[in-house]
Amino acid sequence: MANETYLNKKGLTVKDLVTTGIFSALLWLTMLIGGLPLAPNPVTTFYMPLSSALLGGPVFLLMVAKVPKRGPIFIAGTLAAIIWFVTGMHWAMDLGYFLGGLIGECLAGLKRYRSVRVNIVSYICLSLGCTGSYLCYFADPVSWSSYMLNGGTAADYINTMNATAQSWMPVVIIAGTITVAAFSGWVGSKLLKKQFEKAGITA
């Protein structure tokens, strides 16, 4: 029995951890499947955070409903960050998922993980993590690409970079991600109510 106590300290049992792991895997897959169609295309690559937020809502909400304790959201964010990092994604995106998980955890914790609406907000926070690398780009687009020009930066290039349509894009990316994640969460909450709560698989 002494062994049991060391994992129970923070209230998470082995079962909770395993559940978190399995739903993190599904959540990560939804990000991957959602993001894949847009990521490799030069024009649509910037809207990748939108599509990668589209599928995860139901998975996220069921995870929180199954383990309504301190930890799973943060763990899911951290795991996503680690896996994305190990698969070689940009560091700002990894950091974004880590922070998104942390903030989402704190928010959902305010209502003790029972309020579906706050849980959806928490999912939005996690989804915004994906925008990290793009925000990093928009924060300083010139130096982002200047290394490619070997010092001799063309004037017209800098001008187009600074002046044209680029300035509205981060707003669209963030607002779009929030909208898509909220929609995904809304679908998730409907599913949760209609199917999973009846089936009795939520905690």
Binding site: K10, V18, G21, S24, A25, W28, L29, I82
Partner: peptide
Amino acid sequence: TITIPMAVMLRYLPAV
């Protein structure tokens, strides 16, 4: 709290 979910995650991905 991180290693156990991670082990499960890596084990579960192919099963999906």
